[in-house]
Amino acid sequence: MPPTSLTGQHILSSDQFDRPTLEQLFALADLLRPVARGEQVTRVLEGAVMGSLFFEASTRTRLSCDAAFMRLGGSVSHSTGVAITSISKGESLADTSRVVSGYCDIVVMRHPDEQAVHEFAAATHIPVVNGGNGAGEHPTQALLDLYALSREFARLGKTIDGARIALVGDLKHGRTVHSLVRLLSLFRELTIVCVSPPELTMPAGLLELAAGRGHRVEQTDAPREGLAGADLIYATRLQTERFAGTVAPYSDDFRIDAALLAATALPDAVVMHPLPRDSRPGANDLSTDLNRDPRLAIFRQTDAGIPVRMALFASVLGVGEQIPASLRPATWYRPEYIGPDDAPFYRGHGG
Score class of each variant (00 low, 15 high):
residue 192 I to A: 02
residue 65 C to G: 10
residue 269 A to I: 05
residue 62 R to F: 09
residue 322 Q to R: 15
residue 248 A to L: 14
residue 214 G to A: 03
residue 103 Y to C: 07
residue 165 I to W: 00
residue 283 A to Q: 08
residue 53 L to F: 14
residue 177 V to L: 11
residue 349 H to C: 05
residue 235 A to E: 04
residue 281 P to V: 12
residue 144 L to M: 12
residue 115 Q to G: 13
residue 288 T to I: 05
residue 223 P to K: 11
residue 202 M to G: 00
residue 116 A to L: 07
residue 241 E to K: 14
residue 120 F to C: 11
residue 174 G to S: 13
residue 166 A to D: 07
residue 126 I to Y: 02
residue 215 H to K: 06
residue 2 P to H: 12
residue 259 A to K: 14
residue 237 R to P: 12
residue 127 P to K: 13
residue 243 F to K: 05
residue 72 L to Y: 11
residue 271 V to E: 03
residue 322 Q to A: 15
residue 269 A to K: 03
residue 324 P to W: 03
residue 183 L to Q: 08
residue 319 V to S: 10
residue 292 R to L: 07
residue 288 T to N: 13
residue 208 E to V: 12
residue 103 Y to S: 00
residue 69 F to P: 03
residue 47 G to Y: 10
residue 25 L to P: 09
residue 217 V to N: 07
residue 175 R to G: 01
residue 99 V to A: 15
residue 151 R to I: 04
residue 330 A to P: 01
residue 121 A to F: 11
residue 248 A to I: 04
residue 107 V to H: 02
residue 333 Y to A: 15
residue 77 S to N: 09
residue 217 V to Q: 04
residue 288 T to D: 14
residue 17 F to W: 11
residue 160 I to C: 03
residue 273 H to M: 09
residue 58 S to T: 15
residue 272 M to D: 01
residue 55 F to D: 06
residue 349 H to R: 15
residue 94 A to G: 08
residue 157 G to W: 00
residue 170 D to I: 11
